[in-house]
């Protein structure tokens, strides 16, 4: 197990190296100049040149890359041109809202998808099954920002029940913290639930047709017990894969949802940094999100073993 984890972590190094080069080149070769963005439309050429000099933007590209990557390997992702602080600190500040939103959205997605997926599989072809598939289809077709705007319009503006935008940290009080997150988590969670419903249903259908389920029925176990206690545990692996990938994409920034609900998370940071060409922040954010994506996948792989001893990693007997 430990050697497996070590091997996977070592494999990260070339991935991050390649990502660093690709991101650096893409962002630096994209037209646009942070100095001009910072100084505004009416700045003089002299001011622009002076700022470019101060920000080392006139150095050759490879020099800029070597300087940056040299700092990165020492754990310093550089300074934000616009925010005036270190990229690690900036991302650290933004990670809280993003992780909270991701966890909330995942909980919503699981609460919707697991019961619906299992129920659809237990009564295939029923009205409930058709309903679950319909919900899934609509969820997959609906972009989360559109659902978010619709929720904000109805629940926020028309009914006035919940705030339509913003974020309050936990220090502002639990209820304040939660109420600002309800609409974004629902809009993200419902969309994520769509795929999970289908995966849960398909996986459960496969499992419910197996011999041991028939045996369980013959033993006289209740259908509910069979579905939740026996079948679901075996059907959970494909669901976990999708949950892992979903969580990865949520943690790396629900870009549009964060922008629509004005949540100061990693996604919103990335969008605004790209718009103003804040190179260090873009590069740092993408490097860290790559890292977290790979780590989440690793954790998902390790969790397989907990759910199913047959795939316990590093255990040669079981593999």
């Amino acid at each position: 197990m430990i050697s497996y984890i070590a091997k996977r972590l070592l494999g990260l190094i070339p991935v991050l190296f390649v990502v660093s080069i690709v991101v650096f080149l893409i962002i630096h070769l994209t037209p646009g100049d942070p100095a001009r963005v910072m100084l505004g439309d009416e700045a003089t050429e002299e001011q622009v040149l002076e700022l470019q000099e101060r920000l080392s933007l006139n150095e050759p590209l490879w020099t800029q890359y070597v300087l940056w990557i040299g700092r990165v390997v020492q754990g310093d992702l550089g300074q934000s041109f616009f925010l005036g602080t270190g990229v690690v600190d900036v991302i650290g500040e933004r990670l809280g809202p993003t992780v909270t939103l991701a966890v909330g959205a995942l909980i919503v997605a699981l609460l919707i998808s697991i019961p619906l997926g299992i129920a659809a599989a237990r009564w295939p072809g029923s009205l409930l099954d058709a309903g679950a598939l319909g919900v899934s289809l609509i969820g997959m077709a609906l972009p989360s920002f559109l659902l978010g705007l619709m929720l904000a319009l109805v629940v926020g503006v028309q009914l006035g029940w919940l705030p339509v935008a913003g974020y309050r940290p936990l220090s502002a009080g639990l209820w304040q913290h939660v109420r600002y997150l309800i609409l974004p988590t629902i809009s993200l969670g419902v969309v994520q639930a769509a795929l999970l419903i289908r995966i849960t249903r398909a996986s459960m259908l496969d499992t419910l047709g197996m011999d041991y389920v028939r045996l369980a029925r013959a033993k006289g176990l209740s259908e509910r017990m069979i579905a939740y206690r026996h079948a679901f545990r075996n059907a959970v692996l494909p669901v976990m894969t999708v949950v892992g990938a979903t969580f990865g994409s949520l943690v790396t920034g629900a870009l549009v949802t964060e922008t629509v609900f004005n949540i100061p998370g990693v996604g919103q940071l990335l969008v605004s940094s790209i718009a103003r060409r804040d190179y260090a922040v873009i590069q740092g954010t993408i490097l860290l999100t790559t890292l977290s994506y790979v780590l989440i996948n690793l954790i998902t792989d390790l969790l397989y073993g907990l759910a199913d001893p047959r795939v316990r990693l590093g255990n040669s007997g079981a593999r």
Partner: peptide, 12 residues
């Protein structure tokens, strides 16, 4: 950043 959020925000 988002103009539609500004609108919904003042309306609500």
């Amino acid at each position: 950043a988002d103009a539609s959020t500004i609108l919904l925000g003042i309306e609500s």
